[in-house]
Simulated scan of single mutants.
Amino acid sequence: MIVKVCGMREADNIRAVERAGADWMGFICYEGSKRYVATTPDYLPERSKRVGVFANASIENIRKRAHALRLDFLQLHGTESPELCSTLHTEGYRLIKVFALRSIADLKQIPPFAPYCDYLLFDTPCTGFGGSGKTFDWELLRHYDGDTPFILSGGIRPESLNELCRFRHPKWAGIDLNSGFETAPAVKDAARLKTFIETIKKTSC
C-alpha cells in the first residue's frame, strides 16, 4: 500500500511527514493552489518519493520544476492530452494521470492515456483543479478493468480507515492524503499521519 501525502511545502513539516512514514510526497506546482510551491523548499524528502503536481502547465515549465525539485513522478491534474503524456513518457518521466469520476462513463477517458502512465489517480470532481476534500462513489471503480494501477484520492481522513479496509480492487495500489490531515493549508499533522499510516500498513487494507 503506497501512502502519498500531497500538498507539502514547509521544510520542517516535510521532515516530520517523512518520519511519519509517507512513501510519496506531493508538491503542487499549480499557481492557483493555496498549497503552491513557489520556490524549492529548504528540505526535500530523501526517502519518500517526490511527486510534482501540475495542471495544464507548459512542457517547459514541467521540465524546469522536475529538475529543480528532482521529481520521481509527474502528476498531471488538468486536461493534458495523451500526446503530451506520450512526449513526457518518451523523455523518461514517470507519470500519474488524474481522472475525476462522476459516473462510469468517465472511465472511458482512460485508454488513450494508459500506455504512458505508471499510475492513475482517481479523485472527486470539483470546480477548477485540486482536491475537493470530499469522497466520490468508490463503487464506480468496480467497472475499472484496465491494467494500470491506481491511487485512491478524495476526502480521505482518519475516520476513513474502516471504509478503506472494506474496499477491494486488484489494481488498487495506494491512497492520497491531503486536507483531511491538515492543520493549515500545506501543513500536515504528522502525529495523526503516523498513527494512520502505521494502522493501515498493519491491516489487510
Rank of each mutant, 00 (worst) to 15 (best):
F27K: 00
A22T: 12
A186W: 00
T195V: 13
F54T: 01
T40D: 02
L164R: 02
N162T: 13
E60R: 07
T39G: 04
R35L: 06
A20V: 06
V187K: 12
R9A: 09
H169Y: 03
H169R: 10
V3P: 00
L74H: 09
E182N: 08
T195Y: 06
P41V: 02
K108A: 13
A66Q: 09
T39W: 05
K4G: 01
F181L: 04
G131A: 10
Y93C: 08
E31P: 09
C117S: 06
S81A: 07
I96L: 13
H169W: 01
S58W: 12
L193H: 05
V51M: 05
C29I: 00
C6R: 00
K171L: 03
G154E: 03
G52Q: 10
A20N: 08
Y93K: 12
R9L: 11
L164Y: 11
G146Q: 06
C205A: 08
A11R: 15
R70E: 12
P82M: 02
T148W: 07
P111N: 05
G32V: 03
T39H: 14
K134S: 15
L121R: 10
Y119L: 14
K188D: 01
L101H: 06
N61M: 04
D23A: 07
V51L: 04
F167R: 13
C29M: 13
R102M: 04
K97V: 08
R142Y: 08
G78E: 07
M1L: 08
F136Q: 05
P111E: 12
F196L: 07
R9V: 02
L161A: 10
